[in-house]
Design a protein around this nucleic acid. Structure first.
Length: 885
RNA sequence: GCCGCGGUGGUGGAAUGGUAGACACGAGGGCCUUAAGAGCCCUUGUCCGCAAGGGCGUGGGAGUUCGACUCUCCCCCGCGGCACCA
């Protein structure tokens, strides 16, 4: 399919270059100008590309769909910084390469501008979020255009558009209908500076993911998504997707599936039983105490009369502590004895029941069985309070003595001792045996636990999609509701969506545990969709991560059937939104399923790894739910991104770019001074794409020099040039290397190969032939799209008058020919005992003749071998010959 | 504590187990120029040496191999994820 370049082809093409051929593609405007003027060239081509819509594929009729997607940005803060540009450029190169390889590439862009990031920025600058969004949008799109990425500008989306968040709300409704959205009162993470609740995934080390303030616990009634119901799917799906291992591991850890057993213990002299969860029931013969979380319902109940007061005091102190304090104080274990005992059925031992805040109510059953010999925490606790310690496992250190020091606590592999019928078994065998035994005896039941918790979805903020639910107290009294388990609650019907976010003046978060919308009866007062009595809308909005959990589907559906939308102010403004359609833009479906079938799953998704357990987990969950819809809209796949590539982080002054650090670097000035092409090349040349790097502009002049030299060389193309084999070989070698490097995201080495080729031609004082120039431009095109487009017009013209060219970015990627890669002569390195002592040149045809090479090599290293016994000679054909003496 | 990734010149970084330092940046020297800038040419891991040449070199230590930046084990350092998760 692709052209193969050879000397013959080159001669054949000379005919076309009369210099008189005209093309429809506007190549002529810069004719005659000889100095490189990036500003002029870049804005010219950006305007042409967008006007001609060459990067807007025909979604319906495309033959080789290739959907390349970059995580869309939060347009908060002061604009696109070079870190964003680094990531976007790397993604764009991949897309441009695939386009030249013959794919119909769809590369959309949009803004994730709804939600807390953008709202916080609006607070900072004191502007209404909606007003700020307009400003940010304009600024971001202007900057994005200036980077020269091949975006489809006819299909942009912004998550704060009513025509987008209508469907974000629709997804919430589907969640509710499937029983996956529910409301419950729970201890939730509260960020005291954002004045809202946060999902577990948004709390890092007890601190808010965004602003680093210490997260508090509050008891609030909140909306959750039952992501836990998909825990196994989310876990198993990881085996089928081509994602970086570190991200898969992070998700796996976060899901945290553990198989263990719930064991019930009778409380001595009482009717109560205590249930504990453990993954190490094999050590149960060594169980000597029980510890309850302070919040455990039995904690106070079991306390004997004389200890009741102390237990109560302990519980109250614990409850006042934040999670953070509990963890920090936990370095020194605390606890209080209830006075009660539980019976270890295996040994008959009366285990004292304690209350301690190292036990967490949220995990397992909120109670643990203490095996101090084989768990360090249990040991610390037992040691401090003088509880019994029994060894039941002997590990690889063979220590079988009593456990008296923390270093002796044995948590790893080993064999059972002091454990009756388990003795002699290794711990894994014993685990199975004891679980079988306990289940048989009715003492316990196998249990799977997950670290993953349900996704807390509601936010007490303004700038987000209102949760599309209505609460009717009349219905609740009558026990009626859309779902039996949630009396009083009704979804807003689809034809009533979107629930529009009203413009209010008091939009700032208030910290009362409710959204600012709760102050607006004109918003929340409504009638019950079921019984018509007066009812109240939900006033919380949904988490930003819900907005971004489905956007890849929407891009495909902007413009019905792949028709392009007309960007008009009316459509963009939420006030004028009508249900139905405006122009050719359909509003009656969240995504067009036929387009989704054709283009999804996404061919390659590129983004940062900081979203490992946030966006990248949520987006998979939402896709799985949509896959399971009982509807024509059900997705035909479970995994939206079978291939994900995590780019590195570009940092500045050793830290992630952020406004608070004041180390933001914006590309604008560099683009103005050197052009986007130079900056693109410079960013990509810093190192491997998954590596990131520290942005210093010390090398950018050098890259600018390269770009200008390329310009100079390529404006002096010669048509009549007989190429030597050497030159052809270099060209083919470069084609091979650059192609492979792009495919493996080694952009830095791809650029280095092009520099080598340039050096080879220019150092030899050669002129560049037309054929070389064409290939060179094509290989450089993904990296420097404007420069190459401009030069393409000059170097190549277009071969056929009748053909309408779409420029270099739609030309075929060059293919290399193996036969040119073979060298006539090769250099064989001569080693003595593995040390390089010389080299010999051998004809390629002779590289398999060991004797001849050996004879040549011997001469080379005679002085090293003289008088020594050569024990062995290793010859690697064409590479190396090693004399072992 | 557990898991993952990394450690190569002054700097960013190259190297299917086979010539370590590609390609750049920076630095030094030269040409051009009235001058500056731009451009071009040369040198540039380190030590000894005028040179020829040689020694040493990929965080440290051992090992496998004819041969190790690359594979194995131990240790040190940096970065990232998880974490009183029972």
């Amino acid at each position: 399919m692709n052209k193969t370049y050879s000397a013959k082809a080159s001669r054949g093409k000379q005919d076309y270059n009369s210099g008189e051929i005209e093309s429809k593609w506007p190549f002529d405007s810069a004719q005659g100008k000889q100095t490189y003027n990036p500003t002029a060239i870049e804005s010219k081509w950006q305007a042409i590309w967008e006007k001609e819509k060459i990067f807007s594929p025909d979604l319906t009729n495309a033959q080789n769909p290739y959907y390349t997607l970059m995580m869309f940005p939060y347009p908060s803060a002061e604009g696109l910084h070079v870190g964003n540009m680094y990531a976007f450029t790397g993604a764009d190169i991949q897309g441009r390469y695939m386009r030249m390889k013959g794919k119909d590439v769809f590369e959309p862009i949009g803004l994730d501008g709804f939600g807390i990031h953008s709202e916080n920025y609006a607070i900072k600058v004191g502007r209404h979020p909606r007003e700020q969004a307009k400003i940010s949008q304009e600024n971001f799109y202007r900057q994005l255009r200036a980077t020269g990425n091949a975006y489809d500008w006819t299909r942009t989306l912004e998550t704060y558009d009513a025509d987008y968040y209508k469907w974000t709300q629709w997804i919430f409704v589907q969640m509710f209908k499937k029983g996956l959205a529910y409301r419950k009162k729970a201890q939730v993470n509260w960020c005291p500076s954002d004045l809202t609740v946060l999902a577990d995934e948004q709390v890092i080390d007890g601190k808010c993911e965004r602003d680093g303030s210490t997260v508090e616990k509050r008891d609030l009634e909140q909306w959750f998504f039952k992501i836990t119901e998909y825990a196994d799917e989310l876990l198993n799906g990881l085996n089928q997707i081509d994602w970086p291992e570190k991200i898969k591991i992070a998700q796996k850890q976060w899901i945290g599936k553990k198989i263990g057993i719930n064991i019930k213990y009778k409380v001595d002299d009482l009717e109560d039983t205590i249930e504990v969860f453990t993954t190490r029931p094999d050590t149960n013969f060594g169980a000597t105490f029980i510890a309850l979380a302070p919040e455990h319902p039995l904690a106070l109940k079991l306390a004997t009369a004389e200890s009741k007061k102390d237990v109560e005091r302990y519980i109250n102190v614990s409850k006042k502590k934040t999670d953070q304090e509990r963890k920090e104080d936990g370095k020194e274990k605390t606890g209080i004895f209830t006075g009660a005992y539980a019976i270890n059925d295996l040994t008959g031992y009366k285990m004292p029941i304690w209350v301690s805040d190292f036990v967490l109510m949220e995990f397992g059953t909120g109670a643990v069985v203490g095996v101090p010999g084989h768990d360090k925490r249990d040991f610390e606790f037992a040691k401090k309070f003088g509880l019994k310690i029994i060894r039941v496992v002997v590990g690889t250190d063979r220590d079988s003595s009593d456990i008296t020091k923390i270093e002796q606590v044995q948590e790893e592999e080993g064999r059972m001792v002091n454990s009756d019928f388990l003795n002699g078994m290794d711990i894994h065998e014993a685990t199975i045996k004891i679980m079988d035994y306990m289940e048989e005896k009715g003492h316990g039941k196998r249990k799977v636990t997950y670290h993953l918790r349900d996704w807390l979805i509601s936010r007490q903020r303004y700038w987000g999609p209102p949760i599309p639910m209505v609460y009717c107290s009349t219905c609740e009294k009558n026990g009626r509701g859309e779902r039996k388990d949630m009396p009083g609650w009704w979804t807003v019907s689809e034809d009533q969506l979107p629930v529009e976010l009203p413009d209010v003046k008091d939009w700032r978060p208030q910290g009362t545990g409710t959204s600012p919308l709760a102050n607006h009866p004109e918003f929340y007062e409504t009638t019950c969709p079921s019984c018509n009595s007066s009812a109240k809308r939900e006033t919380d909005v949904s988490d930003t991560f819900l907005d971004s959990s489905w956007y890849y589907l929407r891009y495909l559906s902007i413009g019905s059937g792949g028709k392009q939308k007309n960007i008009s102010k009316d459509i963009k403004s939420h006030q004028s939104l009508e249900i139905g359609s405006i122009g050719n833009w359909k509003f009656d479906e969240p995504y067009e399923i036929n387009m989704v079938r054709k283009w999804c799953p996404v061919a390659i998704y590129i983004g940062g790894s900081e979203h490992s357990v946030l966006h990248l987990l949520y987006v998979r969950f939402v896709a799985m739910v949509l896959h399971d819809l009982n509807s024509p809209l059900a997705l035909p796949f479970q995994e939206p991104f079978p291939r994900f590539y995590a780019h590195g982080l570009l940092i500045s002054e050793g830290a992630k770019m952020s406004k608070s650090r004041g180390n933001i670097i914006v590309p604008d000035d560099y683009i103005k001074k050197f052009g986007a092409d130079t900056l693109r090349l410079y960013l990509m040349f810093l190192g491997p794409f998954d590596h990131g790097g520290d942005f210093r502009d010390t090398g950018i002049e050098g890259m600018n020099r390269f770009v200008r030299r390329v310009w100079t060389l390529l404006t002096k193309t010669t048509d009549n040039l007989q190429l030597t084999t050497d030159r052809l070989r270099f060209m083919h070698k470069t084609i091979k290397a650059v192609s492979e490097d792009i495919e493996s995201f080694s952009y830095n080495t791809a650029i280095a190969r092009l520099m080598e080729w340039y050096n080879f031609i220019s150092n030899s004082k050669y002129q560049i032939s037309k054929m070389e120039a064409e290939v060179f431009l094509k290989l450089l095109a993904p990296f420097a799209p404007h420069l190459t487009e401009e030069l393409w017009g000059r170097v190549s013209r277009v071969s056929k008058v009748s053909e309408v060219s779409k420029g270099i970015h739609f030309e075929e990627w060059p293919e290399y020919d193996e036969k040119y890669l073979v060298e006539d002569q090769v250099t064989v390195v001569v080693q003595v005992n593995g040390k390089r002592r010389g080299e010999v040149t051998v004809d390629s045809s002779n590289i398999d003749k060991k004797q001849e090479v050996e004879a040549l090599a011997r001469k080379e290293i005679e002085k090293y071998v003289k008088g020594k016994l050569v024990k062995n000679i290793i010859y690697v054909p064409g590479r190396i010959i090693n004399f072992v003496i």
